[in-house]
Nucleic acid binder design. Structure first.
Lengths: 340, 340
DNA sequence: ATGAAAGCGCTAACAG
DNA sequence: CTGTTAGCGCTTTCAT
């Protein structure tokens, strides 16, 4: 059943074989033949389609109907399980007629601008940008409905959607203070992304309101990887513990893994001498490292919300460009809801 | 700098504004104006392009030039870090002019046939199918150069590329027997995928040649998830240990995590009373669960090989349809090499 | 019920 | 150097 791949059968080939016009082929191939084509003709066309293994050329189809049907997703690090969850949410929320595509960056390091340009160049039904930084956003002008996920930024004409960082901070603070921790260290990432600053601010605020504090200078790493967290924590963790730090909060659970490993390396009992918590929700977290406390940031829900919103936008019911982070999300079948 | 998204500027708009023909616009937009357009004209066109924020419509462009430029990747479970590695390899191996797209399945469970259909429908430069089962393969006929990754299957007209399972089995056997293990249990997945059977066979063969054996009936789970492995292992692990089993080999490291967790739950020391090994190479394995032995299956290298091969195919140097698993890989800049 | 014809926006010969 | 022209393969009125 091998076939020549150099040339796919076109509607014209089918038309010729079935002795009909391309218009008829188009009708049938698109399932719009209801009561417009005699059963005999239809049968003839169908068998021709089968015989030639004809499939509609999506490029030509898209051009002719002038409608885009693919939603693209770009993220700094699509391999990160966090984004996998977002993607799952997005995929399940998208309209049937839409298909989801992930653009994979060529160059591994953080946000690859050329990947974003690739996305902007394609003609898309919608674009989802996961946690883009301010400088990146300043360089782009949207070519289709665009949603910013977890950027902590707002831009005219683009919808923003952010996780409820304040609630997450509260969760961490509750947890740690409840366990008796008072002196806490923070591990963050130096990066153009205000959402990460929000996390730190939220947790600090919540700790302080409970009589605890980030009691040592933050430890900042360059990259959001387990390895870099490990490298940074290894020489410092002992000092922190000596300084009375009993808990570490990380901007991301990827980082938390690194700290955990460093603690193991240094024979610091976790939990016990040290508790480690992080924002984020790696799907394997609880499976693999139960000693880690990870705050559920509902990545999947974020994806669902974005999907709904995107549908809303595509259906023309795009809410007015949002001026604040309070984005109103309008879904296909869902009621409008506000995201704080 | 917000713009109307309902209609993007076309080459005609630019042409009109710059008072040239669309052909000229096309030349300039594609950077083919070298010595064919006066600097003045070019300048005029460029500023018109900028003014209107014109970008080439990729759909129309693709249709006109009849050349596809996107390579699609479909896998049963793109969220699995294993595939992330493959993707990284693929992305880095692809030609600059090609762009990589991941189709995300709508329905979470294992291989989603409709996702494959989506891929087949699109007009692609190439398609990479990660570990497709035999029944899936029987239902599809390729519409573009197609590569099967880790399927353990061969099909005429499609290139196959598989990990070196035998070497991996040797690695595991060496490791376990070296530690003194003789009675080993195996945890696999009931699934239409011969590659997984290969893994079991390889490890059994290698164990036996070293005087060890899979000494209890295999434990088979339905899904390749940490959870299902945990659920299955929990009631059984104690009996295995009582039967003298001192090591468990898993078809995948996702499963190994589940067994590890079950062992924790049952207070079985790992390593100590029990060693757990698995095929696969989750990037976080060594970070997070150092007590697990994971055999490096070189997922990234697999991606690189596929990328090279795809390029070879796209460049017209497609090796003859392979009849055996010994696929010859022809890369752009790399020498041909044989994969065993 | 079916076909002819006019595009969708772009590219690539080919003229001039 | 630049414009004219003829498609790429499909969809969609509009005639017949």
């Amino acid at each position: 059943m091998t076939r020549d791949l150099t040339r796919r059968a076109t509607a014209r080939d089918v038309a010729k074989l079935a002795e009909v016009s391309v218009a008829t082929v188009s009708l049938i191939a698109n399932g719009k033949s209801a009561g417009r084509v005699t059963p005999e003709t239809e049968q003839r066309v169908r068998s021709a389609i089968q015989q030639l293994d004809y499939r509609i050329n999506t490029t030509a189809s898209a051009l002719a109907r002038g409608r885009r049907d693919t939603v693209a997703f770009v993220s700094p690090d699509p391999a990160n399980p966090f984004f996998s969850l977002v993607l799952d949410g997005l995929a399940s929320a998208l309209d049937e007629s839409l298909s989801l595509t992930i653009l994979w960056p060529r160059h591994g390091d953080d946000y690859d601008p050329s990947t974003v340009q690739r996305a902007l160049a394609g003609d898309l039904a919608g674009l989802v940008l996961a946690s883009p930084g301010a400088t990146l956003l300043d360089t782009i002008s949207p070519t289709c409905p665009t949603i910013l996920l977890e950027s902590g930024e707002t831009r005219a004409g683009m919808a923003s959607m952010d996780l409820d960082v304040e609630a997450a901070g509260t969760g961490i603070a509750d947890h740690l203070v409840g366990l008796g921790h008072r002196r806490v260290g923070y591990l963050g990432v130096e990066r153009d992304r205000s959402t990460l600053n929000h996390r730190r601010d939220a947790v600090e605020r919540q700790l302080q309101s409970r009589g605890a504090a980030l009691s040592v200078p933050d430890l900042m790493v360059q990259r959001m990887t387990t390895q870099s967290a490990y490298d940074a924590a290894l020489p410092l963790l002992g000092r922190w513990v000596a300084d009375g730090v009993t808990a570490v909060v990380c901007a991301d659970d990827l980082l938390a893994y690194g700290v955990l490993r460093a603690a193991h390396e240094l024979d610091i009992p976790v939990p016990g001498t040290l508790s480690i918590a992080g924002f984020g929700n790696l799907p394997y977290s609880s499976m693999v490292a139960p000693s880690l406390t990870s705050v559920d940031l509902s990545a999947r829900e974020l994806g669902v919300r974005a999907g709904n919103s995107l549908n809303g936008m595509l259906l023309g019911s795009d809410p007015a460009p949002n001026e604040t982070l309070r984005t109103t999300v309008v879904g296909r079948n869902s009621t409008a809801r506000a995201l704080v």
